[in-house]
Computed example of a mutant assay.
Amino acid sequence: MHTSLANFDMPDEERVNLAAESFRLLADPTRIKVLWALLQGESSVACLAELAGATPTSVSQHLAKLRLAGLVKGRREGTFVYYSAANDHVRGLLAQALFHADHVDRGMD
Protein backbone atom coordinates (compact mmCIF):
# COMPACT_ATOMS: atom_id res chain seq x y z
CA MET A 1 0.00 0.00 0.00
CA HIS A 2 2.58 2.62 1.08
CA THR A 3 5.09 1.47 -1.50
CA SER A 4 2.67 2.57 -4.21
CA LEU A 5 2.87 6.17 -2.93
CA ALA A 6 5.07 8.49 -4.96
CA ASN A 7 8.32 9.42 -3.21
CA PHE A 8 7.68 7.04 -0.29
CA ASP A 9 10.92 6.65 1.63
CA MET A 10 11.62 4.50 4.69
CA PRO A 11 14.88 4.99 6.63
CA ASP A 12 17.25 2.03 6.71
CA GLU A 13 17.59 -0.18 9.78
CA GLU A 14 20.86 1.34 10.95
CA ARG A 15 19.44 4.87 10.99
CA VAL A 16 16.27 3.69 12.74
CA ASN A 17 18.28 1.87 15.40
CA LEU A 18 20.58 4.85 16.01
CA ALA A 19 17.60 7.20 16.32
CA ALA A 20 15.87 4.81 18.72
CA GLU A 21 19.03 4.61 20.83
CA SER A 22 19.20 8.41 21.03
CA PHE A 23 15.57 8.59 22.15
CA ARG A 24 16.17 5.81 24.68
CA LEU A 25 19.07 7.73 26.18
CA LEU A 26 17.02 10.91 26.33
CA ALA A 27 14.14 9.16 28.10
CA ASP A 28 15.35 10.29 31.52
CA PRO A 29 14.53 13.61 33.22
CA THR A 30 18.04 14.01 34.66
CA ARG A 31 19.63 13.55 31.25
CA ILE A 32 17.30 16.12 29.71
CA LYS A 33 18.19 18.61 32.46
CA VAL A 34 21.91 17.92 32.05
CA LEU A 35 21.77 18.31 28.28
CA TRP A 36 19.71 21.50 28.51
CA ALA A 37 22.24 22.96 30.96
CA LEU A 38 25.07 22.01 28.60
CA LEU A 39 23.32 23.81 25.76
CA GLN A 40 23.74 27.00 27.83
CA GLY A 41 27.50 26.42 27.98
CA GLU A 42 30.32 24.20 29.15
CA SER A 43 30.03 22.86 32.69
CA SER A 44 31.60 20.57 35.27
CA VAL A 45 29.98 17.51 36.83
CA ALA A 46 29.53 19.29 40.17
CA CYS A 47 27.74 22.24 38.58
CA LEU A 48 25.56 19.95 36.45
CA ALA A 49 24.64 17.91 39.52
CA GLU A 50 23.49 21.03 41.31
CA LEU A 51 21.48 22.25 38.31
CA ALA A 52 19.86 18.85 37.75
CA GLY A 53 19.19 18.18 41.44
CA ALA A 54 21.18 14.96 41.33
CA THR A 55 24.35 13.58 42.87
CA PRO A 56 27.68 14.06 41.08
CA THR A 57 28.04 10.27 40.85
CA SER A 58 24.68 9.96 39.13
CA VAL A 59 25.44 12.81 36.73
CA SER A 60 28.82 11.25 35.89
CA GLN A 61 27.10 8.00 34.97
CA HIS A 62 24.56 9.84 32.81
CA LEU A 63 27.32 11.82 31.10
CA ALA A 64 29.25 8.65 30.30
CA LYS A 65 26.22 7.23 28.48
CA LEU A 66 25.48 10.50 26.71
CA ARG A 67 29.11 10.70 25.61
CA LEU A 68 29.03 7.19 24.18
CA ALA A 69 25.92 8.15 22.23
CA GLY A 70 27.71 11.20 20.82
CA LEU A 71 25.37 13.68 22.51
CA VAL A 72 28.00 15.31 24.74
CA LYS A 73 31.75 15.81 24.61
CA GLY A 74 34.32 16.42 27.30
CA ARG A 75 37.38 18.63 27.56
CA ARG A 76 40.03 17.86 30.16
CA GLU A 77 41.76 20.70 31.96
CA GLY A 78 44.18 19.36 34.56
CA THR A 79 42.18 17.05 36.80
CA PHE A 80 38.81 18.49 35.76
CA VAL A 81 36.62 17.57 32.84
CA TYR A 82 34.29 20.15 31.37
CA TYR A 83 31.34 18.93 29.32
CA SER A 84 29.39 20.51 26.49
CA ALA A 85 26.71 19.47 24.03
CA ALA A 86 28.23 17.65 21.08
CA ASN A 87 26.59 19.83 18.41
CA ASP A 88 23.58 21.94 17.46
CA HIS A 89 21.59 18.82 16.55
CA VAL A 90 21.27 18.16 20.29
CA ARG A 91 19.69 21.60 20.74
CA GLY A 92 17.19 20.91 17.97
CA LEU A 93 16.30 17.51 19.36
CA LEU A 94 15.70 18.82 22.88
CA ALA A 95 13.94 21.96 21.72
CA GLN A 96 11.49 19.89 19.67
CA ALA A 97 10.86 17.48 22.56
CA LEU A 98 10.19 20.35 24.97
CA PHE A 99 8.05 22.18 22.39
CA HIS A 100 6.03 19.01 21.97
CA ALA A 101 5.66 18.71 25.76
CA ASP A 102 4.20 22.22 25.81
CA HIS A 103 1.58 21.19 23.25
CA VAL A 104 0.54 17.74 24.42
CA ASP A 105 -3.19 17.40 24.96
CA ARG A 106 -3.39 15.78 28.36
CA GLY A 107 -7.13 15.16 28.06
CA MET A 108 -7.95 17.48 30.95
CA ASP A 109 -10.31 19.75 29.00
Score class of each variant (00 low, 15 high):
residue 28 D to G: 11
residue 34 V to M: 03
residue 18 L to Q: 13
residue 30 T to W: 04
residue 65 K to S: 15
residue 55 T to E: 14
residue 17 N to G: 00
residue 49 A to Q: 06
residue 44 S to A: 09
residue 53 G to V: 08
residue 51 L to K: 13
residue 25 L to N: 10
residue 55 T to F: 10
residue 49 A to S: 10
residue 65 K to V: 06
residue 29 P to N: 07
residue 51 L to N: 07
residue 59 V to M: 11
residue 66 L to W: 05
residue 46 A to C: 03
residue 54 A to C: 12
residue 66 L to S: 07
residue 28 D to W: 05
residue 37 A to C: 03
residue 57 T to W: 04
residue 48 L to Y: 03
residue 53 G to I: 07
residue 41 G to F: 01
residue 46 A to R: 10
residue 17 N to K: 11
residue 16 V to T: 08
residue 50 E to Y: 00
residue 31 R to G: 05
residue 38 L to A: 07
residue 48 L to E: 03
residue 52 A to K: 09
residue 50 E to W: 02
residue 39 L to D: 01
residue 25 L to D: 07
residue 61 Q to R: 15
residue 17 N to M: 11
residue 40 Q to W: 02
residue 24 R to F: 09
residue 38 L to R: 04
residue 29 P to E: 13
residue 68 L to R: 14
residue 30 T to R: 14
residue 57 T to F: 08
residue 17 N to Y: 02
residue 64 A to K: 14
residue 60 S to I: 02
residue 62 H to K: 15
residue 60 S to A: 15
residue 37 A to N: 06
residue 56 P to G: 01
residue 55 T to L: 13
residue 59 V to P: 11
residue 26 L to A: 02
residue 44 S to F: 01
residue 67 R to Q: 15
residue 33 K to L: 13
residue 43 S to Y: 01
residue 46 A to Q: 09
residue 32 I to Y: 03
residue 25 L to A: 06
residue 21 E to C: 00
residue 17 N to V: 11
residue 64 A to V: 10
residue 34 V to H: 03
residue 51 L to I: 11
residue 48 L to M: 02
residue 63 L to R: 03
residue 25 L to M: 09
residue 33 K to C: 07
residue 45 V to L: 01
residue 38 L to V: 01
residue 22 S to V: 14
residue 51 L to Y: 03
residue 18 L to N: 10
residue 36 W to K: 14
residue 54 A to K: 12
residue 49 A to C: 08
residue 39 L to R: 08
residue 18 L to F: 04
residue 38 L to F: 01
residue 17 N to R: 13
residue 18 L to G: 00
residue 31 R to C: 10
residue 37 A to P: 00
residue 57 T to V: 13
residue 22 S to Q: 10
residue 68 L to P: 00
residue 68 L to E: 15
residue 22 S to E: 10
residue 62 H to F: 08
residue 68 L to C: 10
residue 58 S to N: 12
residue 66 L to A: 06
residue 59 V to K: 11
residue 55 T to V: 07
residue 40 Q to K: 13
residue 63 L to E: 04
residue 33 K to E: 09
residue 47 C to D: 11
residue 26 L to W: 05
residue 46 A to G: 05
residue 44 S to L: 04
residue 46 A to N: 05
residue 66 L to N: 07
residue 25 L to P: 01
residue 49 A to I: 06
residue 39 L to Q: 06
residue 56 P to A: 04
residue 50 E to V: 08
residue 29 P to G: 02
residue 53 G to A: 08
residue 54 A to G: 07
residue 48 L to K: 05
residue 43 S to D: 10
residue 40 Q to H: 09
residue 48 L to F: 05
residue 65 K to M: 12
residue 47 C to W: 02
residue 27 A to G: 00
residue 64 A to H: 12
residue 62 H to A: 15
residue 50 E to H: 06
